[in-house]
C-alpha cells in the first residue's frame, strides 16, 4: 500500500466496530426483553405495540 495505509485501516476498523456494536446492542436488548417478558407467560397477547 502506501503511507496512507493507517488512515484506510482506521476507517475500516471504526466502521466494523460501529456495525458490530449496533448488531450486539440490538441482540443484547432483545435477549434482555425476552428474559423480562418470560415473567408474564400467561398474559402475552398478539396486539403488541398497543
Amino acid at each position: 500500500m502506501n503511507d496512507h495505509t493507517g488512515f484506510i485501516v482506521a476507517a475500516y476498523a471504526i466502521t466494523a466496530l460501529a456495525v458490530f456494536g449496533m448488531v450486539a446492542a440490538i441482540a443484547l436488548d432483545r435477549r434482555a426483553l425476552k428474559k423480562a417478558l418470560a415473567r408474564f407467560p400467561a398474559r402475552e397477547s398478539g396486539d403488541d405495540a398497543k
Binding site: 436488548d29 432483545r30 426483553l33 425476552k34 398474559r43
Partner: peptide, 27 residues
Amino acid sequence: LLFLTLHMMAVRNEILRRRLRRLSIIA
C-alpha cells in the same frame, strides 16, 4: 440492506418493549 435488517430487528425490540411495559402496568 444492513440498515433495513438492523431497523427491522430494532423495531421488533420496540414492540417487545411496549408489550413489557403494558404487562408491567397491568401486573
